[in-house]
């Protein structure tokens, strides 16, 4: 009898838990479905097979957008440029972010620590279009601040925004300056979460700096590393603001990325279908890389210490 009541209560509790659970996630779920879930389905399964200019209803055109995508020389350019950005920026953000975090997380006076942290993180916080105004003047070939100092020490002016290859470098420098603070702050958090006892124990065992880093800190940081890597990869694949504001994809097409191509096709040429085919391919690439990343994470990400 008693157990029956308890069982009933539990059932009742289950029902209520289900309901409250759904109610709690409802706002997030709804916005997710309307602004992320639904759109990705629409992008991948519908719009990329259509010709659509917004003013007239979409027309089904089969694979035409994809055929155009694979025959247009501009496509290989934008994919290549995007891959270049990923190849340059992902290692830079991860390595520099980690090094800076190690540089800050030492036994130093706390005002100094606060100063370093603020200096490195502050560019993350400010409006991107505000700081690109500053940096384009820094990068200017003939009147720029950077070339002025290079000339002073006898180095020839660098064609930062003039040459395709250098423009890529310039955008990368800006991107690291602007964004490395986010990976930095994640690594700082990761380092702070390492219990002091681990380090003390290792030191007593006579471990040197090299040992401490590679045998203790690095393995303990792998979960952080994984999170940082995942978010940075995706951010780099959709890099838009930096090339749009600094070079507008130029000179020529040398910094034109997939995101710029999508923007231009969708919101300048109003070819929503063609733009969606790029969106679908971008999604497929990111998905594939994420799947690979997740399947390899067991090999190197260390969750033992949690």
């Amino acid at each position: 009898m008693g157990s029956f009541v308890a069982g009933n209560l539990r059932k009742h509790r289950h029902f209520r838990d289900n309901l409250t659970g759904y109610l709690f996630i409802l706002p997030a779920l709804l916005t997710f479905l309307v602004f992320i879930g639904g759109p990705i389905v629409a992008s991948v399964f519908f719009l990329d097979f259509c010709k659509y200019n917004i003013l007239t209803p979409p027309v089904y055109v089969g694979l035409r957008n994809f055929l155009k995508l694979f025959s247009d020389p501009m496509s290989s350019t934008v994919f290549l440029n995007t891959f270049k950005f990923v190849a340059i920026l992902v290692p830079l953000h991860v390595v520099i972010g980690l090094l800076l975090a190690l540089g800050v997380c030492r036994k130093i006076a706390s005002p100094l620590k606060y100063y370093y942290r603020t200096a490195i993180y502050f560019p993350v916080v400010v409006t991107v279009s505000a700081v690109t105004i500053i940096w384009t003047y820094f990068f200017n070939f003939d009147f720029g601040v950077i070339n002025y100092f290079l000339n002073l020490v006898g180095i020839q002016s660098v064609p930062w925004l003039k040459s395709g290859d250098w423009a890529l470098v310039a955008v990368a420098i800006f991107s690291v300056w602007k964004g490395v603070g986010s990976s930095f702050i994640f690594f700082v958090i990761g380092l702070q979460n390492i219990p002091d006892s681990y380090m003390e124990a290792a030191k007593i065992d006579g471990a040197n700096w090299f040992h401490l880093f590679f045998k203790i800190k690095l393995p303990l940081l792998t979960p952080t590393m994984f999170l940082v890597l995942t978010t940075i990869l995706i951010n780099c694949f959709q890099i838009f603001d930096e090339p749009f504001l600094i070079t507008n994809g130029g000179p020529g097409t040398s910094t034109r990325t997939i995101a710029l191509q999508i923007y231009e096709q969708a919101f300048r040429s109003y070819d929503m279908g063609y733009a969606s085919s790029f969106a679908a391919v971008l999604f497929a690439i990111v998905l594939a890389i994420t799947v690979i990343q997740f399947s390899f994470q067991k090999k190197w990400v260390n969750y033992d210490y949690e």
Binding site: K162, G164, G249, G250, P251, G252, R268, S269
Partner: peptide
């Protein structure tokens, strides 16, 4: 015009920069 001017600008910047 809008599309042509974009192409025009792109090639002009290519020619002036390299």
């Amino acid at each position: 015009y809008a599309v042509i001017a974009t192409i025009f600008d792109r090639y002009l910047s290519e020619i002036l920069s390299k």
